[in-house]
C-alpha cells in the first residue's frame, strides 16, 4: 500500500453479526485513499450497503474499528460524520418539502450555518437550480437522485458515499450520473460508490474492491484488473499427442495438457505483438499439425464470478 498520509478511511477488522446469527460483514479490511474513486463491486446482498452504513454511523459494527481522517468514527463521530456525505440507494425523500429547503435542512443537520450561496452553487452544479422551489414529490426519479446528491454535498464534505447510484437508471441517466461523479472527483472529493455493474466500476473507479458474502475478496487498481483482463489463452488442439514440447517452442508461454493433445498459449491481447504469427510459424516448422484453434478471454465478469464462487 501507499504511505499512511494518503489514507483517508481506514477500515480495520470490521465484523457485523446480527442477532439472528446472520453475518453481514466478516472481518473487512479496506483502506481508501484521499481523492480516489473506489468502487465496491458485488452482487445484491454482498454487504456493500452494510459496509458504507457502518462507516457513516447508521450501523454499529459488532467488532473492528473505522477511522476517517485519523479519527475514530464512534468516539469522534461528530468530526468524522462532518467529513462524510451519503447518497442512499433508495430514493428516500420527503414529499412536501421544496428542493432548496431539503438541501438546506441537511446542511444544518450536519452542523453548518445557513448559507444560501453554497446551496445555490450545489444546485446549479447539479442542474437543479430551476427546480429549487419544486416540491420533492413533483420530481422524476433521476431528479430525486440528484437532490439526494445535493443533500449529501450540502455541508461540503470531503468524502462522498454513493450507494448504487445508477441502479434502475436508464442508459442516458447513468452516463449523466457518471459525469456528475467525475466533476465531483475533480473538485477533490473522495468517492466511494457501490455497484453491481462491472461496467460502471470499470468506467468510474481508480480502484475496485470486490465484495461478496460480507468479505472483501480483492482490491485492485482498475488498470491492473484491466491488464489481467487483457490476458488471453489460445487453445491449440493437435492431431498427434506430443511426449514433450519441442525446444524450438521454449520462447513461448506454453503448457501441454495431461492427455498431450492440447497446447495452451498464454498471451496478452493488449500487447502490440502478441506473438501469434510467430507461434503458428514455429508450430509449422516443428511439424506439429493442428486440428483446431480457439481463444478465450477471462473477463472481469469471469474473474468476478470465479472469485465469488471460490468464496462460496
Amino acid at each position: 500500500m501507499t504511505d499512511n498520509a494518503d489514507i483517508l478511511i481506514d477500515i480495520k477488522n470490521i465484523t457485523k453479526k446480527y442477532d439472528n446469527g446472520f453475518t453481514a460483514l466478516d472481518d473487512v479490511n479496506l483502506q481508501i485513499k484521499k481523492g480516489e474513486i473506489i468502487a465496491l463491486l458485488g452482487p445484491n446482498g454482498a454487504g456493500k450497503t452494510t459496509l458504507i452504513s457502518t462507516v457513516c454511523g447508521i450501523i454499529t459494527p459488532t467488532s473492528g474499528t473505522i477511522s476517517v481522517g485519523g479519527l475514530d468514527t464512534i468516539k469522534d463521530y461528530r468530526d468524522t460524520r462532518k467529513m462524510i456525505g451519503l447518497v442512499p440507494q433508495e430514493l428516500t425523500t420527503d414529499a412536501f418539502e421544496t428542493v432548496f429547503d431539503t438541501v438546506s435542512f441537511t446542511r444544518g443537520l450536519f452542523g453548518k450555518p445557513r448559507n444560501p450561496a453554497v446551496i445555490e452553487k450545489i444546485l446549479k452544479d447539479l442542474s437543479l437550480w430551476d427546480k429549487k422551489d419544486n416540491k420533492l414529490r413533483e420530481l422524476s426519479g433521476g431528479m430525486k437522485r440528484r437532490v439526494l446528491i445535493a443533500k449529501a454535498l450540502s455541508h461540503e464534505p470531503d468524502i462522498l458515499f454513493l450507494d448504487e447510484p445508477t441502479a434502475g437508471v436508464d442508459v442516458e441517466l447513468r452516463k449523466d450520473m457518471w459525469n456528475v461523479m467525475r466533476k465531483l472527483s475533480q473538485t477533490g472529493v473522495t468517492i466511494i460508490l457501490t455497484t453491481h455493474y462491472i461496467e460502471e466500476a470499470e468506467e468510474m473507479a481508480d480502484r475496485i474492491g470486490v465484495i461478496s458474502k460480507g468479505r472483501i475478496l480483492l482490491v485492485e487498481q482498475t488498470s491492473e484488473l484491466m491488464r489481467k483482463l487483457g490476458h488471453k489463452e489460445m487453445l491449440i488442439e493437435i492431431s498427434e499427442p506430443l511426449s514433450a514440447l519441442p525446444a524450438s517452442l521454449s520462447d513461448f508461454d506454453l503448457t501441454l495438457s495431461d492427455d498431450r493433445k492440447l497446447i495452451t498459449y498464454s498471451y496478452n491481447a493488449s500487447h502490440e505483438h502478441p506473438g501469434i504469427t510467430r507461434l503458428l510459424k514455429a508450430l509449422i516448422d516443428a511439424d506439429i499439425r493442428t486440428t483446431d484453434i480457439s481463444t478465450k478471454q477471462s473477463s472481469l465478469e469471469d474473474i468476478f464470478v470465479n472469485l465469488v464462487r471460490d468464496a462460496a
Binding site: I58, L86, A95
Partner: peptide
C-alpha cells in the same frame, strides 16, 4: 417510515 431517518442517523448529532 419514508427512510429519510438515514440522514439523522448519519449526521453529527
Amino acid at each position: 417510515f419514508t427512510g429519510t431517518i438515514y440522514e439523522i442517523l448519519s449526521a453529527p448529532v
